[in-house]
Write a protein that binds this DNA or RNA. Structure first.
Lengths: 383, 383
DNA sequence: ATGGTCGGCTAAACCGGTTTAGCAAGGAGC
DNA sequence: GCTCCTTGCTAAACCGGTTTAGCCGACCAT
């Protein structure tokens, strides 16, 4: 005989307590509508039976889930490998918890974001780093869910939060240019790989080239370029490499550039994790930081001040971005009267630490022509 | 007139397409049960109307949510401030995504974990760091959800994953003892603050003292003590301080100990984040690492190798813990025939880097009596 | 006695899908 | 001609709660 007792339902409690389902529901949700002793008795019976209201049924009837989603364009595994994301999540979580909302992370399911979003039971989503040229962005918008965009291009009808990426990037570039650096390598964040979506209702997503030219990356690149232009310099495309926003991504990006014969005296990385990875590779090929190579990051994660050497980086208020995103989202989810899409732009600022210094060529008074591609690692003078 | 059109329902699609609700459902979920052209037509109509099946309704009927929960004893804000948690989440997320499950983070709601769990719509949970003496642990178990415990004491009926904390801690302590350190400060991870629960059905949770003696902390402490005992030494309680598992927590814990007059030559921290924080404070009071103070962490987060100086720490397979937890959980959720609670114990190992070295007293041949509490920072000889 | 109000409770509808049971038409087999 | 499948579709039940509308009796005022 099957001893596998299923969870008691509200009807079981009602029968056992000799009342209606309604009364049981009241006992939990609006006890003031029952005589005090009735409510107590019902709760006792419920407790004895081990009854817990099924949250899915409640959500269905109430037509809300008290849950917010964090929509990520890449797998959570890769998102979490960037410390930035943990910090952002911290801000989101704190704000959501304050108002009693739960948190659901939504990442591509079988490669499709729209599919994942369709399956997820949330009242609204914070989309982080979803670029406007994402192949599924229209499907995502069409889901009809309240959504606020963080670090994305603006999309009509949605609130958004960005930081002043361009100004931050410009400040970073000005900093290294002022120190005499001319051979600069930019390490950019690449977009998610093209979705190989055979997903539901996907119309003609094939042939989509990964274009690392949109969103955050584009804005920061513009900032770097503005600084170079202002100094009468150029930043040709071959001085820009891209990779994943993680330590490994930065390490391999620098590695690739090095193998291609690039011999920068400064690196402008679009994330601290990448900057740290680049420093690791740089040391492996014999460079000292900042003597031989200056490195600037972006984000100012908590650990940026503690790495070796302490990282010069562009500070942005990451936690606050997450918290503000939730506030904006709630205004829409809860249909506040005065609600209408808003755009927030938060400030960035350069934080100079010890990973940057004067260009070696500036110290040695005369610049030197680029070395041949496959020269040995320690070719650069070590004084 | 309200132009606010609500989302179309399945009945709307059915009417528009001239078929039954059943047919619409089939068109999405089992198209092979319809004539091919009917299915296509229905999907076209659905697309035109912008119809998306309501996932809550589906979950209710199917009695599963295809979502896994991560249960955390503290607010997500504080969980995410420990890089360990991001790494763990990375492992969980990767494994969950592989099998098509979504991820939901469950943290105390209004101070109550049981309440949050009751509200959350998941098929099973991975509980991280939930100590058996948590005031709500019984309520959590009573929820009747499949659950696997990570870094907890064993609970009958549940699968669990731990690492060999004791061996790892012992190795760390042996390492510093072997280097001649005798004045050792342990920086422990404190449990969550006592739940101020006026939560539903909480029976007598008051007067509960935070007992930092359970779970991970207890096991690691045992490991440290074992090493001291084996060397004929002691580790008195006043050499153990506790704090939050974050950089700030470690910084303030060391600060407190210092203010109390402790003058350790080595620190055994139970988390890398705390170790890094302790190093920061140590430097602020004028200590050099490892010359004046050796520091050992625990976890081996990605950045441990990149801080200044590179951190000696106890490595544990954090991502794998997350991934294995999901695998164990799925076995239970999906009712695999051979399923029964399992206990996994993963290995730890000491990774020696540059934050540890010989004790100063060992170099100067004769130990020195502890200094008075409020002595100036740089009292220790700097040679 | 009559009508009105109020406290305490209930029956039934409802949320929006999925699933079960089964109907109707067309073709095959005998 | 009759039965038996098979294909394609549908009506109704169902998931497990919440919410609406309203019943019933007690109490109060007139």
């Amino acid at each position: 005989m099957e001893r596998r007792r299923s969870r008691p339902r509200i009807a079981d409690v009602a029968r056992e307590a000799g009342v209606s389902k309604t009364a049981v529901s009241f006992a939990f949700n609006s006890p003031e509508r029952l005589a005090a002793e009735t409510a107590v008795r019902i709760r006792e019976v419920a407790g004895a039976l081990g009854y817990r209201p099924n949250p899915v049924a409640r959500q269905l009837r109430q037509r809300r889930t008290m849950t917010l989603g964090v929509l990520t364009p890449q797998a959570l595994g890769v998102m979490f490998s960037n410390p930035f994301f943990a910090l952002f999540s911290e801000g989101v979580a704190q704000a959501a918890e304050e108002v009693g909302y739960g948190l659901h992370f939504i990442s591509p399911l079988h490669g499709s974001l729209a599919l994942a979003l369709g399956r997820s039971t949330v009242d609204g989503v914070v989309a982080i780093g979803l670029s406007a040229d994402h192949p599924e962005v229209e499907q995502v918008r069409g889901a009809g869910l309240p959504m606020v965009l963080v670090d994305s291009d603006d999309l009509p009808g949605h609130s958004s939060i960005v930081v002043d990426d361009e100004a931050g990037a410009r400040a970073a570039a000005v900093h290294v240019i002022d120190q005499g650096h001319r051979e600069v390598l930019v390490i950019a964040v690449e977009g998610p790989a093209p979705a190989g979506g055979d997903g539901v209702g996907a119309d003609a997503a094939d042939g989509h080239e990964s274009s690392p030219g949109e969103g955050v990356t584009a804005r920061r690149l513009r900032g770097y370029r503005a600084a170079f232009a202002a100094a009468g310099l150029e930043l040709p495309a071959e001085r820009v490499v891209a990779g994943r926003a993680s330590i490994e991504g930065g390490a391999s990006a620098f590695q690739r550039a090095w193998a291609l014969g690039r011999r920068p005296t400064a690196v402008l990385a679009m994330s601290d994790a990448m900057a740290i990875g680049a420093m690791r590779t740089a040391r492996e090929v014999g460079l000292r930081i900042p003597d031989d190579l200056s490195v600037v990051g972006f984000d100012d994660i908590d650990l940026a001040a503690h790495v070796d050497p302490p990282l010069t980086t562009v500070h942005q208020p990451i936690r606050q971005k997450g918290a503000d995103a939730v506030r904006l989202l709630l205004a829409e989810v809860e249909q506040r009267a005065d609600h209408r899409p808003r755009r927030l732009r938060l400030e960035t600022r350069l934080t100079v630490r010890e990973s940057t210094g004067p260009a070696p060529s500036a110290r040695r008074s005369s610049p030197q022509s680029p070395q041949s591609p496959q020269s040995p690692p320690k070719a650069r003078p070590t004084g």
